[in-house]
């Protein structure tokens, strides 16, 4: 278990801080891109992010469409089976919600601020 650093540790840590400050001074003029390069990087990163989000949205819509199509076809072929699955899923969802609320409130009691 760590206690407050003792005197010997304080001296050591002060020495370390001084050495690290010297290290920082040596590398003060470290490699840094120019402002223009950062702005170009920002533009490129945001463009790439937007493209990725569009791709993910299209993928999501296609997947959702596929799932809904399968469910509709199944519903038309065997409506009772669908009703049973739907009912069972709803009950399972309610049970999971109720138990996760209990877990969350138990977690809040034990957590530190």
């Amino acid at each position: 278990m760590a206690n407050k650093p003792d005197k010997e540790d304080e001296v050591l840590l002060e020495g370390l801080s001084r050495d690290l400050e010297r290290l920082e001074r040596v590398f003060d003029e470290g490699p840094s891109p120019s402002l223009e390069e950062f702005q170009l990087l920002a533009a490129h990163t945001l463009r790439r992010k937007r493209r990725r989000m569009k791709y993910e949205l299209v993928l999501f819509m296609l997947t959702a469409l596929l799932i809904v199509s399968i469910v509709c076809m199944a519903a038309m072929a065997a409506p009772m089976v669908l009703i049973l699955i739907h009912g069972a899923s709803m009950l399972a969802g309610i049970a999971i919600l109720a138990s996760s609320r209990k877990l969350r409130s138990a977690g809040k009691k034990g957590s530190h601020e």
Binding site: D28, P31, A42, L46
Partner: peptide, 26 residues
């Protein structure tokens, strides 16, 4: 920058880069 202004984003990271690099160096 959070609203998509790339000039502001560039300024922000240019300002912090040296600190970041020196931290990572250590």
């Amino acid at each position: 920058a959070q609203q998509g202004d790339t000039n502001a984003m560039g300024q922000l990271f240019k300002h912090h880069y040296s600190f970041l690099y020196k931290y990572l160096l250590k």
